[in-house]
Design a protein around this nucleic acid. Structure first.
Length: 506
RNA sequence: GGCCCGUUCGUCUAGGGGUUAGGACGUUAGAUUUUCAUUCUAGAAACAGGGGUUCGAUUCCCCUACGGGCUACCA
C-alpha cells in the first residue's frame, strides 16, 4: 500500500445544484492528485432513484469544466474502471452484500418502514443495533426456516451490517489525527436497499476498492459513518487496500450557525452554487458564482483559502501554485463561515490581475447580454485596461464601460442642472471649437486645451469638470475624463458635448 | 437525548511553553484622485471559562461552556 498510485475521487449524487463546499472538495481532491501525479476520478453516486434529477450529471460536468478541474476518468470519458455510474454497477453490490451475510457480518432484515417507525416511537433513542435487533424481523431473530420462506416469497428486505459489540474502531484522519468510535453506539446501517441498490455505505467501499482509490477526502458530515466503512473494508478482506481518509471541515453560514445552504444565499444575497441551477420541481432558479460574474480562477482561489493556507501571507494563488503548495495536513479542522465580502475581494483581485486579452471574451459576453455589440477588439482591450481596476464582478464592466460603446442614454442631470448657467454653456461651445481645431488628440493635450480655456473664462475646475464628465459618461463614474475623451476620439467627443448641451439647456 | 468533531480579532487564518500574538477581508482616520474606484499610510480589533503540568501557559492535559455534524431502505 505504501507505493500505491495516488487515485482520488469526487462522488456526487446527481440531485441538483453543485454547492461551493462540493467544489472545494473537488478542488482539494484535484490538488492532491495532481501534486502526486495521480488520477482524479469522477464517480456518479446515483443509487437513490427517488432523488435522481435529470440533467444534474451534465450540470456537474459543466461546473467542473468551468472550474478547470477536469476528471481523468468519468462517465463521459470512461476509464479502466468503468462504468462510473453506480446505477450501472448495480448487480455488483448484491454479490458483496450476500458475501457479508454468508460470513456473518451482515443479515437480512424484513421490517417494513411502518414497523420501523413504530419501533422508533416506542423506544426512545432507538437504534437498529445490538440492543434491539432481536426484537425485529431479521435473519438474526428469525429461524433459518422462516428466513428461507420469506426469501422464497420474495418478501422485500434489506441487508444490514451487523455491528460488533464492545469494540473500538479507530483510524488516523489526515486532517484530524486519531479518531475513534465505540461500535455499540453505531447502528446496523442498511447496506443494500429493498430495490437492490446499495446505500452509500456499501457502494463507497466497494467502488473505492474496485477503483483502487488511495485517498478518500469528503465532508466532515461523513465522520460518524466512518466506522461502518472501516468495518466493511475489514469484513470484505480489503483492509490492506483501504484509502487514507481525510474529513474536510464544513462551510458554515456567514451569520447564525449551521451548514451553508442555498437558502442562505437567497436570503443573504450571494451565490452558493458554482453555476446557476434551475430546479424544475420548484420552478426556481438559484444563481451561481459563474453567472454572477466570478472568474473561475477567483472562485477556486477563494475556495482554497476557506480552510487551507500555506502558512505564509500569500492570499492569491493560481491553480498551478495551489497544486504545488497544497497540503492536506494544513487544512484546518474547524468549519469556516463563508464571507461573501472577501469572496468579492478575491474576484476583484483576479480581474485586476488578468490581462485585457484574458478578460476580453467574458466582457464581450457581458455586453452581449445587455444588447451591446462590440466590434472593435483593439478598442475593447483598451477599454478593459482603463476600467478593470474598478470592477469587482464581471457585470460591472457594463456599468463602468458601456458609455465607451454608445452615447449615454441618460444624464445625471441633477448633478449639473442646479449650477448650470450661460457662462458654462459658452465655455463648452468654445471648447467644441478648440477641440475641433486641435491637431493632436491625446489626454494630455485635451486637458491642456481644457484648462487654458478654463483660465480664460475664469472658471474653476469644479465648475466644468463634472459637467464634462457627465456629457461623456452620463454619470459620476468612470476613468479620468480626459482619458475617456482621448479614447472616444474627436468626432464622438464633440458630438457628445453638443448632444448634452441640448439637454442641459433644455 | 446519544455519539463524533471542533473553539486565536466581526470573518478567513498564522503562530506556538517565554512573541509588541502576525497577515488578509471588512471597518475607522488620513494622503492621492476636486467623479468614483484603485493605490498608499495609520488605527481599532482575538488566544471561550475553570482547573492542572510548569519557573512560566494562548500553546500540553482534564473538565465545563459554547458551536457544528450525525443519529433514513439520502448522499
Amino acid at each position: 500500500m505504501a507505493d500505491k498510485k495516488v487515485r482520488v475521487r469526487f462522488a456526487p449524487s446527481p440531485t441538483g445544484g453543485l454547492h461551493l463546499g462540493g467544489v472545494r472538495t473537488v478542488l482539494f481532491n484535484y490538488l492532491f492528485a495532481k501534486q502526486h501525479g495521480g488520477d482524479f476520478v469522477l464517480r456518479i453516486e446515483d443509487t437513490d432513484q427517488n432523488r435522481y434529477v435529470e440533467g444534474a450529471e451534465q450540470y456537474i460536468l459543466d461546473c467542473l469544466a468551468w472550474c478547470g478541474l477536469i476528471p481523468d476518468e468519468s462517465p463521459v470519458v470512461g476509464g479502466p474502471f468503468a462504468p462510473y455510474r453506480q446505477s450501472e454497477r448495480k448487480p455488483l453490490y448484491r454479490e458483496y452484500a450476500e458475501k457479508l451475510v454468508m460470513e456473518g457480518h451482515a443479515y437480512y432484515a424484513f421490517d417494513t418502514p411502518e414497523e420501523l417507525d413504530a419501533k422508533r416511537k416506542e423506544v426512545p433513542n432507538f437504534q437498529y443495533g445490538h440492543a434491539h435487533r432481536d426484537e425485529l424481523r431479521n435473519s438474526l431473530s428469525l429461524s433459518q426456516h422462516e428466513v428461507d420462506a420469506l426469501l422464497d416469497a420474495h418478501t422485500p428486505h434489506v441487508i444490514r451490517i451487523k455491528m460488533p459489540t464492545d469494540e473500538t474502531i479507530s483510524f488516523n484522519d489526515m486532517i484530524r489525527g486519531h479518531v475513534s468510535f465505540e461500535t455499540n453506539q453505531v447502528d446496523d446501517k442498511v447496506l443494500l436497499k429493498a430495490d437492490g441498490m446499495p446505500t452509500y455505505h456499501l457502494a463507497v467501499v466497494v467502488d473505492d476498492y474496485l477503483m483502487k482509490i488511495s485517498h478518500a477526502f469528503r465532508g466532515e458530515e461523513w465522520l460518524p459513518s466512518a466506522p461502518v466503512h472501516l468495518l466493511l473494508w475489514d469484513y470484505l478482506g480489503w483492509k490492506a487496500d483501504m484509502p487514507q481518509w481525510a474529513h474536510l471541515p464544513l462551510i458554515l453560514k456567514p451569520d447564525g450557525h449551521g451548514k451553508l445552504s442555498k437558502r442562505d444565499g437567497a436570503r443573504l444575497g450571494f451565490p452558493v452554487y458554482a453555476m446557476s441551477w434551475f430546479d424544475v420541481k420548484t420552478d426556481e432558479l438559484t444563481q451561481g458564482f459563474r453567472e454572477l460574474g466570478f472568474l473561475p480562477e477567483a472562485f477556486l482561489n477563494l475556495l482554497a483559502m476557506l480552510g487551507w493556507n500555506d502558512g505564509g501571507d500569500q492570499e492569491i494563488f493560481t491553480l498551478d501554485a495551489l497544486v504545488e503548495k497544497f497540503s492536506i495536513e494544513r487544512v484546518s479542522k474547524a468549519g469556516a463561515k463563508f464571507d461573501y465580502e472577501k469572496a468579492k475581494w478575491y474576484n476583484a483581485e483576479w480581474i485586476k490581475k488578468t490581462s485585457a486579452e484574458g478578460l476580453k471574451d467574458k466582457v464581450i459576453t457581458v455586453f452581449a447580454d445587455k444588447g451591446v455589440a462590440v466590434n472593435d477588439d483593439q478598442y475593447l482591450l483598451t477599454v478593459i485596461d482603463a476600467v478593470k481596476e474598478r470592477c469587482i464582478l464581471l457585470p460591472d464592466f457594463y456599468q463602468q464601460a458601456s458609455f465607451f460603446f454608445g452615447v449615454p442614454k441618460e444624464y445625471d442631470i441633477n448633478s449639473v442642472k442646479p449650477k448650470w448657467n450661460e457662462a458654462k454653456d459658452a465655455f463648452f461651445n468654445l471648447l467644441i471649437d478648440r477641440y475641433a481645431a486641435s491637431h493632436t488628440w491625446d489626454a494630455l493635450e485635451l486637458e491642456n486645451i481644457f484648462k487654458a480655456l478654463m483660465e480664460e473664462k475664469a472658471l474653476k475646475a469644479g465648475d466644468v469638470m463634472l459637467p464634462f464628465r457627465i456629457m461623456l459618461v452620463g454619470g459620476k463614474f468612470g476613468p479620468h475624463v480626459f482619458d475617456i475623451a482621448a479614447m472616444l476620439g474627436k468626432e464622438e467627443t464633440i458630438g457628445r458635448i453638443e448632444k448634452a448641451l441640448v439637454v442641459f439647456n433644455g
